[in-house]
Nucleic acid binder design. Structure first.
Lengths: 234, 234
DNA sequence: TTATGGCGATATGTATACAGATGACAAGGG
DNA sequence: CCCTTGTCATCTGTATACATATCGCCATAA
Protein backbone atom coordinates (compact mmCIF):
# COMPACT_ATOMS: atom_id res chain seq x y z
CA UNK A 1 0.00 0.00 0.00
CA UNK A 2 1.61 3.19 -1.15
CA UNK A 3 -1.49 5.31 -1.21
CA UNK A 4 -1.34 7.25 2.02
CA UNK A 5 -3.63 7.09 5.02
CA UNK A 6 -6.48 8.83 3.28
CA UNK A 7 -5.97 6.81 0.15
CA UNK A 8 -5.03 9.96 -1.70
CA UNK A 9 -2.56 10.20 -4.51
CA UNK A 10 -1.69 13.37 -6.46
CA UNK A 11 -3.63 11.95 -9.42
CA UNK A 12 -6.78 12.24 -7.39
CA UNK A 13 -7.49 15.93 -7.59
CA UNK A 14 -7.86 18.27 -4.62
CA UNK A 15 -10.58 17.35 -2.16
CA UNK A 16 -11.95 20.76 -1.28
CA UNK A 17 -15.62 20.07 -0.73
CA UNK A 18 -15.21 16.32 -0.92
CA UNK A 19 -17.94 13.91 0.01
CA UNK A 20 -17.69 10.83 2.17
CA UNK A 21 -19.09 8.27 -0.28
CA UNK A 22 -16.30 6.91 -2.44
CA UNK A 23 -16.93 6.87 -6.17
CA UNK A 24 -16.19 3.71 -8.08
CA UNK A 25 -13.78 5.57 -10.34
CA UNK A 26 -11.73 6.71 -7.34
CA UNK A 27 -11.54 3.23 -5.91
CA UNK A 28 -10.49 1.75 -9.23
CA UNK A 29 -7.87 4.42 -9.73
CA UNK A 30 -6.43 3.78 -6.29
CA UNK A 31 -6.55 0.03 -6.84
CA UNK A 32 -4.71 0.27 -10.13
CA UNK A 33 -2.07 2.54 -8.64
CA UNK A 34 -1.56 0.06 -5.82
CA UNK A 35 -1.27 -2.82 -8.24
CA UNK A 36 1.31 -0.99 -10.30
CA UNK A 37 3.32 -0.07 -7.23
CA UNK A 38 3.09 -3.58 -5.84
CA UNK A 39 4.37 -4.93 -9.12
CA UNK A 40 1.23 -6.94 -9.86
CA UNK A 41 0.83 -4.80 -12.95
CA UNK A 42 4.14 -4.40 -14.70
CA UNK A 43 5.30 -1.88 -17.30
CA UNK A 44 3.88 -2.85 -20.67
CA UNK A 45 0.91 -4.74 -19.28
CA UNK A 46 -2.30 -4.00 -21.16
CA UNK A 47 -5.12 -2.19 -19.39
CA UNK A 48 -8.18 -3.47 -21.21
CA UNK A 49 -11.29 -1.46 -20.37
CA UNK A 50 -13.74 -4.32 -20.72
CA UNK A 51 -11.61 -6.77 -18.80
CA UNK A 52 -11.01 -4.31 -15.97
CA UNK A 53 -14.70 -3.44 -15.87
CA UNK A 54 -15.55 -7.10 -15.45
CA UNK A 55 -12.93 -7.70 -12.79
CA UNK A 56 -14.18 -4.73 -10.77
CA UNK A 57 -17.81 -5.61 -11.47
CA UNK A 58 -18.63 -2.18 -12.86
CA UNK A 59 -19.27 -0.72 -16.28
CA UNK A 60 -16.57 0.65 -18.54
CA UNK A 61 -17.39 4.24 -17.58
CA UNK A 62 -15.63 4.47 -14.21
CA UNK A 63 -12.81 2.30 -15.54
CA UNK A 64 -12.22 4.74 -18.37
CA UNK A 65 -12.16 7.58 -15.90
CA UNK A 66 -9.53 5.86 -13.81
CA UNK A 67 -7.45 5.10 -16.89
CA UNK A 68 -7.60 8.71 -18.02
CA UNK A 69 -6.17 9.74 -14.69
CA UNK A 70 -3.44 7.14 -14.88
CA UNK A 71 -2.60 8.50 -18.31
CA UNK A 72 -2.33 12.13 -17.23
CA UNK A 73 -0.36 11.10 -14.15
CA UNK A 74 2.13 9.32 -16.37
CA UNK A 75 1.56 5.86 -14.94
CA UNK A 76 -0.16 4.67 -18.10
CA UNK A 77 0.50 5.38 -21.73
CA UNK A 78 -1.42 4.66 -24.88
CA UNK A 79 -0.54 1.64 -26.94
CA UNK A 80 -1.84 0.23 -30.23
CA UNK A 81 -5.60 0.79 -30.48
CA UNK A 82 -5.20 3.87 -28.28
CA UNK A 83 -5.55 1.32 -25.52
CA UNK A 84 -3.83 2.08 -22.24
CA UNK A 85 -1.00 0.04 -20.86
CA UNK A 86 1.23 0.49 -17.85
CA UNK A 87 3.91 2.99 -18.82
CA UNK A 88 7.05 1.41 -20.16
CA UNK A 89 9.51 4.23 -20.68
CA UNK A 90 12.51 3.58 -22.90
CA UNK A 91 15.98 4.04 -21.55
CA UNK A 92 16.17 7.75 -22.33
CA UNK A 93 12.79 8.48 -20.75
CA UNK A 94 13.69 6.51 -17.68
CA UNK A 95 16.90 8.50 -17.33
CA UNK A 96 14.90 11.71 -17.64
CA UNK A 97 12.46 10.48 -15.05
CA UNK A 98 15.09 9.66 -12.48
CA UNK A 99 17.03 12.83 -13.17
CA UNK A 100 13.90 14.89 -12.65
CA UNK A 101 13.00 12.95 -9.54
CA UNK A 102 16.46 13.52 -8.11
CA UNK A 103 16.22 17.24 -8.68
CA UNK A 104 12.71 17.63 -7.33
CA UNK A 105 13.46 15.52 -4.27
CA UNK A 106 16.61 17.56 -3.74
CA UNK A 107 14.51 20.71 -3.84
CA UNK A 108 12.24 19.26 -1.19
CA UNK A 109 15.22 18.34 0.96
CA UNK A 110 16.67 21.82 0.67
CA UNK A 111 13.41 23.40 1.76
CA UNK A 112 12.96 20.79 4.46
CA UNK A 113 16.39 21.63 5.86
CA UNK A 114 15.26 25.24 6.12
CA UNK A 115 11.67 24.81 7.21
CA UNK A 116 11.14 21.63 9.17
CA UNK A 117 9.98 22.14 12.71
CA UNK A 118 11.83 20.52 15.59
CA UNK A 119 9.08 17.93 15.80
CA UNK A 120 9.37 17.16 12.11
CA UNK A 121 13.13 16.72 12.36
CA UNK A 122 12.64 14.40 15.30
CA UNK A 123 10.10 12.45 13.31
CA UNK A 124 12.53 12.08 10.45
CA UNK A 125 15.19 10.83 12.85
CA UNK A 126 12.71 8.33 14.21
CA UNK A 127 12.03 6.99 10.72
CA UNK A 128 15.75 6.61 10.03
CA UNK A 129 16.11 4.71 13.28
CA UNK A 130 13.34 2.36 12.23
CA UNK A 131 15.11 1.89 8.92
CA UNK A 132 18.22 0.80 10.76
CA UNK A 133 16.19 -1.85 12.57
CA UNK A 134 14.72 -3.16 9.34
CA UNK A 135 18.15 -3.33 7.74
CA UNK A 136 19.52 -5.19 10.76
CA UNK A 137 16.66 -7.65 10.42
CA UNK A 138 17.15 -7.91 6.65
CA UNK A 139 13.44 -7.14 6.35
CA UNK A 140 13.10 -5.95 2.75
CA UNK A 141 9.34 -5.41 2.81
CA UNK A 142 9.59 -3.52 6.08
CA UNK A 143 12.40 -1.36 4.73
CA UNK A 144 10.43 -0.51 1.61
CA UNK A 145 7.64 0.83 3.81
CA UNK A 146 10.05 2.81 5.99
CA UNK A 147 11.78 4.11 2.88
CA UNK A 148 8.47 5.42 1.55
CA UNK A 149 7.76 7.14 4.85
CA UNK A 150 11.21 8.73 4.88
CA UNK A 151 10.83 10.32 1.47
CA UNK A 152 7.27 11.30 2.21
CA UNK A 153 8.43 13.06 5.37
CA UNK A 154 10.97 15.02 3.35
CA UNK A 155 8.29 16.11 0.91
CA UNK A 156 5.99 17.20 3.70
CA UNK A 157 8.88 18.97 5.38
CA UNK A 158 9.29 21.28 2.40
CA UNK A 159 6.03 22.94 3.45
CA UNK A 160 4.99 23.43 -0.15
CA UNK A 161 1.97 21.50 -1.38
CA UNK A 162 2.82 21.89 -5.04
CA UNK A 163 6.37 20.61 -4.64
CA UNK A 164 5.11 17.75 -2.50
CA UNK A 165 2.60 16.67 -5.12
CA UNK A 166 5.19 16.87 -7.87
CA UNK A 167 7.60 14.76 -5.85
CA UNK A 168 4.94 12.20 -4.93
CA UNK A 169 3.87 11.92 -8.54
CA UNK A 170 7.39 11.32 -9.76
CA UNK A 171 8.02 8.87 -6.96
CA UNK A 172 5.01 6.80 -7.91
CA UNK A 173 6.09 6.76 -11.53
CA UNK A 174 9.45 5.35 -10.56
CA UNK A 175 8.09 2.85 -8.08
CA UNK A 176 7.79 -0.07 -10.52
CA UNK A 177 11.55 0.08 -10.81
CA UNK A 178 12.55 1.27 -7.36
CA UNK A 179 11.07 -1.27 -5.01
CA UNK A 180 12.37 -4.27 -6.90
CA UNK A 181 15.98 -3.32 -6.23
CA UNK A 182 15.64 -3.88 -2.52
CA UNK A 183 14.56 -7.43 -3.14
CA UNK A 184 17.00 -8.24 -5.89
CA UNK A 185 20.16 -6.43 -4.93
CA UNK A 186 22.25 -5.58 -1.89
CA UNK A 187 21.00 -2.06 -1.59
CA UNK A 188 19.43 -2.02 1.86
CA UNK A 189 22.50 -1.01 3.81
CA UNK A 190 23.74 1.61 1.37
CA UNK A 191 20.30 3.15 1.06
CA UNK A 192 20.04 3.37 4.81
CA UNK A 193 23.47 5.00 5.05
CA UNK A 194 22.38 7.61 2.52
CA UNK A 195 19.24 8.31 4.50
CA UNK A 196 21.42 8.86 7.53
CA UNK A 197 23.50 11.40 5.63
CA UNK A 198 20.38 13.25 4.49
CA UNK A 199 19.06 13.29 8.04
CA UNK A 200 22.29 14.74 9.35
CA UNK A 201 22.18 17.56 6.81
CA UNK A 202 18.54 18.32 7.54
CA UNK A 203 19.20 18.38 11.27
CA UNK A 204 22.12 20.74 10.69
CA UNK A 205 19.74 22.98 8.74
CA UNK A 206 22.18 22.76 5.85
CA UNK A 207 20.13 22.95 2.63
CA UNK A 208 23.04 22.58 0.23
CA UNK A 209 24.29 19.44 1.97
CA UNK A 210 20.79 17.99 2.17
CA UNK A 211 20.18 18.61 -1.52
CA UNK A 212 23.52 17.13 -2.49
CA UNK A 213 22.91 14.06 -0.33
CA UNK A 214 19.52 13.49 -1.91
CA UNK A 215 20.89 13.92 -5.41
CA UNK A 216 23.53 11.30 -4.71
CA UNK A 217 20.94 9.04 -3.10
CA UNK A 218 18.72 9.14 -6.17
CA UNK A 219 21.68 8.85 -8.52
CA UNK A 220 22.79 5.72 -6.69
CA UNK A 221 19.27 4.35 -6.94
CA UNK A 222 19.07 5.12 -10.65
CA UNK A 223 22.45 3.52 -11.29
CA UNK A 224 21.47 0.42 -9.39
CA UNK A 225 18.24 0.13 -11.34
CA UNK A 226 19.99 0.66 -14.66
CA UNK A 227 22.31 -2.21 -13.79
CA UNK A 228 19.38 -4.35 -12.76
CA UNK A 229 17.58 -3.75 -16.04
CA UNK A 230 20.72 -4.38 -18.04
CA UNK A 231 21.26 -7.63 -16.18
CA UNK A 232 17.67 -8.68 -16.80
CA UNK A 233 18.11 -8.10 -20.51
CA UNK A 234 21.57 -9.65 -20.83
CA UNK B 1 -3.21 30.19 -28.09
CA UNK B 2 -0.89 28.74 -25.56
CA UNK B 3 -1.19 25.15 -26.68
CA UNK B 4 1.86 24.56 -28.79
CA UNK B 5 2.11 23.87 -32.50
CA UNK B 6 0.74 20.39 -32.24
CA UNK B 7 -1.96 21.52 -29.85
CA UNK B 8 -0.39 19.40 -27.13
CA UNK B 9 -0.33 20.20 -23.46
CA UNK B 10 1.16 18.03 -20.71
CA UNK B 11 -2.36 17.15 -19.61
CA UNK B 12 -2.83 15.37 -22.90
CA UNK B 13 -0.92 12.19 -22.30
CA UNK B 14 2.00 10.93 -24.40
CA UNK B 15 1.23 10.42 -28.05
CA UNK B 16 3.20 7.28 -28.75
CA UNK B 17 1.02 5.47 -31.26
CA UNK B 18 -1.35 8.39 -31.69
CA UNK B 19 -3.93 8.55 -34.42
CA UNK B 20 -4.64 11.43 -36.75
CA UNK B 21 -8.37 11.86 -36.09
CA UNK B 22 -8.84 14.19 -33.15
CA UNK B 23 -11.16 12.96 -30.46
CA UNK B 24 -13.84 15.30 -29.20
CA UNK B 25 -12.51 15.00 -25.68
CA UNK B 26 -9.07 16.18 -26.79
CA UNK B 27 -10.48 19.16 -28.62
CA UNK B 28 -12.61 20.17 -25.67
CA UNK B 29 -9.70 19.82 -23.27
CA UNK B 30 -7.52 21.99 -25.47
CA UNK B 31 -10.32 24.52 -25.92
CA UNK B 32 -10.90 24.79 -22.18
CA UNK B 33 -7.19 25.20 -21.51
CA UNK B 34 -7.04 27.96 -24.10
CA UNK B 35 -10.03 29.70 -22.58
CA UNK B 36 -8.50 29.58 -19.14
CA UNK B 37 -5.19 30.92 -20.38
CA UNK B 38 -6.87 33.61 -22.42
CA UNK B 39 -8.78 34.71 -19.34
CA UNK B 40 -12.18 33.96 -20.85
CA UNK B 41 -12.64 31.45 -18.06
CA UNK B 42 -11.47 32.90 -14.77
CA UNK B 43 -10.59 31.25 -11.47
CA UNK B 44 -13.77 30.27 -9.68
CA UNK B 45 -15.89 30.03 -12.83
CA UNK B 46 -18.16 26.99 -12.84
CA UNK B 47 -17.61 24.25 -15.37
CA UNK B 48 -21.06 22.79 -15.81
CA UNK B 49 -21.03 19.51 -17.68
CA UNK B 50 -24.40 19.89 -19.34
CA UNK B 51 -23.82 23.49 -20.33
CA UNK B 52 -20.39 22.72 -21.79
CA UNK B 53 -21.79 19.71 -23.62
CA UNK B 54 -24.42 21.90 -25.23
CA UNK B 55 -21.99 24.64 -26.15
CA UNK B 56 -19.66 22.11 -27.80
CA UNK B 57 -22.60 20.24 -29.34
CA UNK B 58 -21.54 16.90 -27.90
CA UNK B 59 -22.73 14.65 -25.12
CA UNK B 60 -21.55 14.91 -21.54
CA UNK B 61 -19.16 11.99 -21.95
CA UNK B 62 -16.28 13.73 -23.72
CA UNK B 63 -16.84 16.83 -21.62
CA UNK B 64 -16.45 14.81 -18.46
CA UNK B 65 -13.26 13.34 -19.81
CA UNK B 66 -11.84 16.78 -20.51
CA UNK B 67 -12.84 17.99 -17.05
CA UNK B 68 -11.17 15.01 -15.42
CA UNK B 69 -7.95 15.92 -17.14
CA UNK B 70 -8.25 19.55 -16.11
CA UNK B 71 -8.71 18.34 -12.56
CA UNK B 72 -5.65 16.11 -12.49
CA UNK B 73 -3.62 18.82 -14.19
CA UNK B 74 -4.57 21.24 -11.46
CA UNK B 75 -6.38 23.71 -13.69
CA UNK B 76 -9.76 22.75 -12.29
CA UNK B 77 -10.87 21.85 -8.78
CA UNK B 78 -14.07 20.46 -7.41
CA UNK B 79 -16.61 22.76 -5.92
CA UNK B 80 -20.00 22.18 -4.23
CA UNK B 81 -21.84 19.33 -5.93
CA UNK B 82 -18.45 17.83 -6.81
CA UNK B 83 -18.79 20.06 -9.82
CA UNK B 84 -15.62 21.34 -11.41
CA UNK B 85 -14.67 24.97 -11.49
CA UNK B 86 -11.56 26.76 -12.66
CA UNK B 87 -8.99 26.46 -9.90
CA UNK B 88 -8.98 29.34 -7.49
CA UNK B 89 -6.06 28.76 -5.13
CA UNK B 90 -5.97 30.69 -1.90
CA UNK B 91 -3.03 32.92 -1.08
CA UNK B 92 -0.95 30.17 0.49
CA UNK B 93 -1.52 27.78 -2.42
CA UNK B 94 -0.67 30.48 -4.91
CA UNK B 95 2.57 31.20 -3.07
CA UNK B 96 3.40 27.49 -3.15
CA UNK B 97 2.60 27.35 -6.83
CA UNK B 98 4.87 30.24 -7.76
CA UNK B 99 7.63 29.05 -5.48
CA UNK B 100 7.54 25.62 -7.09
CA UNK B 101 7.41 27.12 -10.55
CA UNK B 102 10.43 29.28 -9.79
CA UNK B 103 12.41 26.29 -8.64
CA UNK B 104 11.44 24.03 -11.51
CA UNK B 105 12.07 26.72 -14.09
CA UNK B 106 15.42 27.40 -12.44
CA UNK B 107 16.27 23.72 -12.77
CA UNK B 108 15.44 23.87 -16.45
CA UNK B 109 17.61 26.95 -16.87
CA UNK B 110 20.53 25.30 -15.12
CA UNK B 111 20.32 22.27 -17.37
CA UNK B 112 19.79 24.47 -20.41
CA UNK B 113 22.95 26.39 -19.58
CA UNK B 114 24.81 23.08 -19.60
CA UNK B 115 23.13 21.29 -22.46
CA UNK B 116 21.78 23.68 -25.04
CA UNK B 117 23.32 23.34 -28.47
CA UNK B 118 24.79 26.35 -30.22
CA UNK B 119 21.69 26.49 -32.41
CA UNK B 120 19.42 26.43 -29.37
CA UNK B 121 21.36 29.25 -27.72
CA UNK B 122 21.12 31.26 -30.91
CA UNK B 123 17.39 30.60 -31.02
CA UNK B 124 17.00 31.82 -27.46
CA UNK B 125 18.92 34.99 -28.34
CA UNK B 126 16.62 35.49 -31.30
CA UNK B 127 13.56 35.25 -29.06
CA UNK B 128 15.01 37.79 -26.65
CA UNK B 129 15.68 40.13 -29.56
CA UNK B 130 12.06 39.80 -30.66
CA UNK B 131 11.02 40.57 -27.11
CA UNK B 132 12.99 43.81 -27.23
CA UNK B 133 11.09 44.80 -30.36
CA UNK B 134 7.75 44.08 -28.76
CA UNK B 135 8.69 46.10 -25.69
CA UNK B 136 9.82 49.01 -27.87
CA UNK B 137 6.47 48.87 -29.64
CA UNK B 138 4.61 48.55 -26.32
CA UNK B 139 2.89 45.51 -27.84
CA UNK B 140 1.59 43.63 -24.78
CA UNK B 141 -0.10 40.81 -26.67
CA UNK B 142 2.97 40.31 -28.83
CA UNK B 143 5.23 40.28 -25.78
CA UNK B 144 3.07 37.71 -24.05
CA UNK B 145 3.55 35.38 -27.01
CA UNK B 146 7.30 35.98 -27.12
CA UNK B 147 7.48 35.49 -23.36
CA UNK B 148 5.81 32.09 -23.70
CA UNK B 149 8.26 31.09 -26.42
CA UNK B 150 11.19 32.19 -24.29
CA UNK B 151 10.25 30.06 -21.34
CA UNK B 152 9.29 27.19 -23.57
CA UNK B 153 12.73 27.33 -25.21
CA UNK B 154 14.36 27.13 -21.79
CA UNK B 155 12.32 24.05 -20.94
CA UNK B 156 13.20 22.37 -24.19
CA UNK B 157 16.84 23.34 -23.69
CA UNK B 158 17.01 21.29 -20.51
CA UNK B 159 16.84 18.18 -22.70
CA UNK B 160 14.70 16.36 -20.17
CA UNK B 161 11.13 15.53 -21.17
CA UNK B 162 9.95 15.00 -17.61
CA UNK B 163 11.28 18.32 -16.38
CA UNK B 164 9.86 20.05 -19.43
CA UNK B 165 6.40 18.64 -18.81
CA UNK B 166 6.50 19.57 -15.15
CA UNK B 167 7.53 23.12 -16.01
CA UNK B 168 4.88 23.45 -18.71
CA UNK B 169 2.21 22.17 -16.38
CA UNK B 170 3.14 24.63 -13.66
CA UNK B 171 3.35 27.43 -16.17
CA UNK B 172 -0.16 26.78 -17.42
CA UNK B 173 -1.48 26.71 -13.90
CA UNK B 174 -0.03 30.15 -13.23
CA UNK B 175 -1.11 31.62 -16.54
CA UNK B 176 -4.45 33.02 -15.32
CA UNK B 177 -2.42 35.29 -13.09
CA UNK B 178 0.70 35.83 -15.15
CA UNK B 179 -0.54 37.23 -18.41
CA UNK B 180 -2.76 39.84 -16.84
CA UNK B 181 0.20 41.65 -15.29
CA UNK B 182 1.60 42.64 -18.66
CA UNK B 183 -1.62 44.42 -19.48
CA UNK B 184 -2.24 45.96 -16.11
CA UNK B 185 1.20 46.91 -14.87
CA UNK B 186 4.48 48.30 -16.09
CA UNK B 187 6.24 45.01 -16.23
CA UNK B 188 7.17 44.69 -19.87
CA UNK B 189 10.56 46.39 -19.66
CA UNK B 190 11.66 44.75 -16.42
CA UNK B 191 10.60 41.32 -17.64
CA UNK B 192 12.56 41.81 -20.82
CA UNK B 193 15.64 42.90 -18.86
CA UNK B 194 15.41 39.75 -16.77
CA UNK B 195 15.17 37.63 -19.89
CA UNK B 196 18.32 39.31 -21.14
CA UNK B 197 20.12 38.40 -17.92
CA UNK B 198 19.00 34.78 -18.21
CA UNK B 199 20.15 34.66 -21.82
CA UNK B 200 23.56 36.02 -20.89
CA UNK B 201 24.01 33.33 -18.25
CA UNK B 202 22.87 30.57 -20.57
CA UNK B 203 25.22 31.76 -23.29
CA UNK B 204 28.06 31.81 -20.79
CA UNK B 205 27.18 28.22 -19.91
CA UNK B 206 26.87 29.32 -16.32
CA UNK B 207 24.19 27.15 -14.69
CA UNK B 208 24.31 28.81 -11.28
CA UNK B 209 23.85 32.27 -12.74
CA UNK B 210 21.09 31.09 -15.04
CA UNK B 211 19.25 29.43 -12.18
CA UNK B 212 19.61 32.48 -9.98
CA UNK B 213 18.41 34.78 -12.74
CA UNK B 214 15.33 32.64 -13.33
CA UNK B 215 14.55 32.46 -9.63
CA UNK B 216 14.67 36.25 -9.40
CA UNK B 217 12.60 36.55 -12.56
CA UNK B 218 9.84 34.36 -11.16
CA UNK B 219 10.07 35.98 -7.76
CA UNK B 220 9.60 39.38 -9.37
CA UNK B 221 6.64 38.03 -11.29
CA UNK B 222 5.09 36.53 -8.18
CA UNK B 223 5.59 39.75 -6.23
CA UNK B 224 4.02 41.78 -9.00
CA UNK B 225 1.03 39.47 -9.13
CA UNK B 226 0.61 39.50 -5.37
CA UNK B 227 0.50 43.29 -5.50
CA UNK B 228 -1.99 43.16 -8.34
CA UNK B 229 -4.30 40.83 -6.45
CA UNK B 230 -4.01 42.90 -3.29
CA UNK B 231 -4.85 46.04 -5.27
CA UNK B 232 -7.83 44.32 -6.87
CA UNK B 233 -9.14 43.40 -3.44
CA UNK B 234 -8.36 46.67 -1.70
C1' DT C 1 -37.60 36.07 13.90
C1' DT C 2 -34.70 32.27 13.67
C1' DA C 3 -33.65 27.58 13.48
C1' DT C 4 -34.75 23.13 11.69
C1' DG C 5 -36.45 19.54 8.99
C1' DG C 6 -38.17 17.63 4.88
C1' DC C 7 -39.05 17.97 0.07
C1' DG C 8 -38.00 18.81 -4.61
C1' DA C 9 -35.02 20.18 -8.40
C1' DT C 10 -30.77 19.71 -10.53
C1' DA C 11 -26.24 18.14 -11.38
C1' DT C 12 -23.08 14.50 -11.08
C1' DG C 13 -22.08 9.27 -11.24
C1' DT C 14 -22.90 4.92 -13.57
C1' DA C 15 -24.79 1.71 -16.89
C1' DT C 16 -25.80 0.39 -21.46
C1' DA C 17 -26.21 0.74 -26.39
C1' DC C 18 -24.39 2.19 -30.67
C1' DA C 19 -20.84 3.86 -33.98
C1' DG C 20 -16.39 4.16 -35.81
C1' DA C 21 -11.71 3.00 -36.26
C1' DT C 22 -7.78 0.02 -36.04
C1' DG C 23 -5.06 -3.95 -36.07
C1' DA C 24 -4.86 -8.84 -37.31
C1' DC C 25 -5.32 -12.42 -40.34
C1' DA C 26 -6.10 -14.76 -44.43
C1' DA C 27 -6.35 -15.09 -49.31
C1' DG C 28 -4.64 -13.97 -53.66
C1' DG C 29 -1.22 -12.22 -56.91
C1' DG C 30 3.55 -11.08 -58.23
C1' DC D 1 8.28 -17.10 -50.87
C1' DC D 2 7.05 -12.49 -49.91
C1' DC D 3 4.23 -8.73 -50.37
C1' DT D 4 -0.25 -6.65 -50.94
C1' DT D 5 -5.03 -6.05 -50.13
C1' DG D 6 -9.48 -6.79 -48.40
C1' DT D 7 -12.40 -8.46 -44.90
C1' DC D 8 -13.51 -9.21 -40.14
C1' DA D 9 -13.30 -9.12 -35.19
C1' DT D 10 -12.49 -6.32 -31.37
C1' DC D 11 -11.62 -2.49 -28.82
C1' DT D 12 -12.11 2.36 -28.02
C1' DG D 13 -15.08 6.75 -28.49
C1' DT D 14 -19.58 8.83 -28.02
C1' DA D 15 -24.43 9.10 -27.04
C1' DT D 16 -28.26 8.30 -24.16
C1' DA D 17 -30.86 6.62 -20.29
C1' DC D 18 -31.10 5.78 -15.49
C1' DA D 19 -29.61 6.10 -10.44
C1' DT D 20 -28.21 8.81 -6.74
C1' DA D 21 -26.62 12.37 -3.88
C1' DT D 22 -26.36 17.13 -2.74
C1' DC D 23 -27.98 21.74 -2.26
C1' DG D 24 -31.44 25.19 -1.89
C1' DC D 25 -35.95 26.45 -0.58
C1' DC D 26 -40.03 26.53 1.93
C1' DA D 27 -42.93 25.33 5.54
C1' DT D 28 -43.42 24.74 10.30
C1' DA D 29 -42.47 25.14 15.02
C1' DA D 30 -39.97 27.11 18.99
Amino acid sequence: MYTDDKGKVPGGEADAAASETERAADLIFAALVDRIIAGELRPGDALNETALAESFAVSRTPVREALQRLGVTGLAQRGPRRAFMVSQPDRASLDDLFEAMGEVEALCAEYAARRMSAAERAGLAEIVAEGAERVAATDEAGYIAVNARFHRALFDGAHNATLRDLALGLRIRTSPYRDAQFRRTERLASSQAEHQRILTAVRAENPAAAGAAVREHIAATALNIARMIAAARG
